[in-house]
């Protein structure tokens, strides 16, 4: 991973305003903290901003959050650049985050990656031309018992094979909603009977 900085000026929107629904949510979030500890609401507010703005966080949104919480802009920037879940540049409609940490890797995450790259025609960190998919490698997402796995936007897809991975991408591209969770027929992470070949 290298230093993540906000996207260049050309990409940044001119302004950002929270919509009505989010403003109500903000009031609720802030009310959860003591009155002189408003700055604690920084992470949930940035998350709201990212969700409202097609899954990425522009500078103007950080400014807006800084204003709402009356904290200096640099403090917002520090947090936004620290947490890799904040996307600082535009991403596709589906953000495919492939886990490449040891358990997933041992269970074949390399093959899953290859399948994605082949299907989408892009590399890590790139977005398809139709702005549908962005591919990203991430560290452990905590679902090792169902390795290998990917997270697409807010959903986990687990127990993947190359075939099921391609299937999920196909479904998403067609606007269908693939089954979430384990793709192997398991309900959760119960022991899997491995048939001796």
């Amino acid at each position: 991973m290298s230093l993540r900085m906000p996207a260049p000026k050309e990409v940044q929107p001119k302004s950002f305003k929270f919509n009505k629904a989010n403003l109500d949510k903000i009031n609720f979030i802030i009310s959860k903290y003591p009155s002189d500890r408003q700055a604690s609401a920084l992470l949930p507010l940035l998350d709201l901003a990212q969700r409202q703005n097609n899954n990425w966080l522009p500078l103007e949104a950080m400014n807006e959050v800084a204003k709402i919480l009356s904290i200096p802009m640099i403090k917002v920037l520090e947090v936004a650049t620290f947490y890799s879940m904040f996307n600082l540049a535009p991403v596709g409609k589906y953000l495919v985050q492939i886990c490449g940490t040891t358990p997933c890797w041992l269970r074949g995450s390399d093959k899953i990656t290859e399948a994605c790259k082949k299907k989408l025609g892009i590399n890590y960190g790139e977005t398809t031309q139709d702005n549908q998919f962005t591919l990203m490698e991430v560290e452990c997402l905590g679902a090792c018992s169902n390795a290998p796995m990917v997270q697409i936007n807010d959903t986990y897809y687990e127990d993947l094979t190359e075939k099921s991975m391609t299937g999920i991408l196909n479904d998403l591209a067609k606007g269908k909603k693939p089954r979430k969770g384990p793709q192997s027929g398991r309900k959760g992470s119960e022991p899997q009977i491995i048939k001796e070949a």
């Binding site: 993540r4 640099i74 650049t81």
Partner: peptide
């Protein structure tokens, strides 16, 4: 402030 994290942390002026 300090932006980024770990090895990539940088002192930065807004």
């Amino acid at each position: 402030g300090a932006v980024g994290r770990g090895e990539d942390m940088e002192i930065f002026s807004s």
